[in-house]
Computed example of a mutant assay.
Amino acid sequence: MIGIVGIIVIFVMVFGGYMAAGGKMGIILHSLPYEFTMIGGAAIGAFIISNNVSEIKHTLGAVGKVFKGPKWKATDYRDLLCLLFELIRLARQNPMGLEEHIEAPADSSIFGRYPKIRADREAVELICDTLRSASMNYDDPHQVEEVLEKRMEANLHHALHSSHALQTVADGLPALGIVAAVLGVIKTMGSIDQPPEILGKLIGGALVGTFLGVFLAYGLVGPFAAKVKTVIEEDAHFYQLIREVLVANLYNHSANICIEVGRQNTPSHNRPGFADLEEALKQTRDAA
């Protein structure tokens, strides 16, 4: 919702200010379809050249993050801590009983109590793979921690590709606007014998290309890229929380300490209060 508000503010301030200063929209509206076709079409073509089909789909899907915001909310972080608490406690009390949950999480009664987390493939695999590693009695927890770190870095790098792709388009739009403007000047030079009022409209139409390229780059596509990056990096904290809790488990800290480590590493705006989390864990223990 906040993304839509931002777009409205941009258009109202730019075009409202232009009209308030006495500018006329006629020339812009007349030239806009042609200039947008050249600039937008060239930008889309360059985007297609620069990315494969999978990356194109990934980037188009990521644009929705501008309006939806982060996937993981404060309640999801609380649910994640409760889920990890259940799994760690079960691993300590009944290691054999844990196996059925980490080998078939889709059928697990524990994972079933947290459907949003269970539906996220990366989160489930990260939890199950790490707990499976713990059951293999690693002599050095640093080994698992290093593997998790590299895995998460690779996932984040892949997820950020959509932001980089959008930023690349934003960087190229001003230059494409100049291309459109040059073509407009060429068109104007072909009509140099026309009266000044005709030449003025032709020159104004050419300048619309420069305006449109810069406006799209810094008013829309660039901010879209920045927002996508922010959302992706914020969602990455959810997976980092899994790492922090399960690495603490590898060091044989108590289940409560492991969860407190996770709570302390939760971003402040999503961090559950100590009392609230204790109440949630109490309900979890009672339901088990």
Rank of each mutant, 00 (worst) to 15 (best):
I2R: 15
I2P: 05
I4H: 13
I8G: 05
F11S: 04
V14D: 00
F15H: 07
M19Q: 13
G22M: 05
M25Y: 01
I27W: 11
I28E: 10
M38R: 11
M38D: 03
I39C: 06
I39S: 01
I48S: 10
I49P: 07
V53W: 07
I56N: 04
H58E: 14
V63C: 10
V63I: 12
V63G: 06
K65S: 10
F67N: 00
R89V: 14
L90D: 05
A91E: 13
Q93N: 12
N94V: 00
E99G: 03
P105Q: 01
A106N: 12
S109W: 02
I110M: 08
P115M: 07
K116E: 12
A123W: 01
L126D: 01
C128N: 11
D129N: 13
R132K: 13
S133W: 00
A134I: 14
N137R: 06
H142Q: 15
V144A: 10
V144C: 05
E145I: 08
V147Q: 12
V147M: 14
R151F: 03
A154V: 08
A154N: 10
N155D: 09
H157I: 12
A159C: 06
A159L: 09
A165V: 05
L166I: 04
A170N: 04
G172R: 06
L173I: 13
L173Q: 04
L173W: 09
L173G: 07
A175R: 08
G177R: 07
I178H: 09
A180V: 09
V182R: 05
L183I: 15
G184Y: 04
I186F: 07
K187A: 12
K187W: 03
K187P: 02
S191T: 01
P195Y: 09
L207A: 08
G209E: 13
L212W: 01
G213C: 03
F215T: 08
A217D: 02
A217Q: 04
Y218T: 11
G219T: 03
G222L: 01
G222Q: 01
P223W: 03
F224I: 08
K227A: 05
E233F: 04
E233C: 13
E234L: 10
A236T: 11
F238N: 06
Y239H: 10
Q240G: 15
V245E: 00
V247Q: 03
A248V: 05
Y251L: 07
N252R: 09
A255S: 12
C258A: 13
I259G: 03
V261G: 02
G262T: 00
R263T: 09
N270F: 14
L277E: 00
E279A: 15
E279L: 14
A280K: 06
A287V: 09
A288N: 14
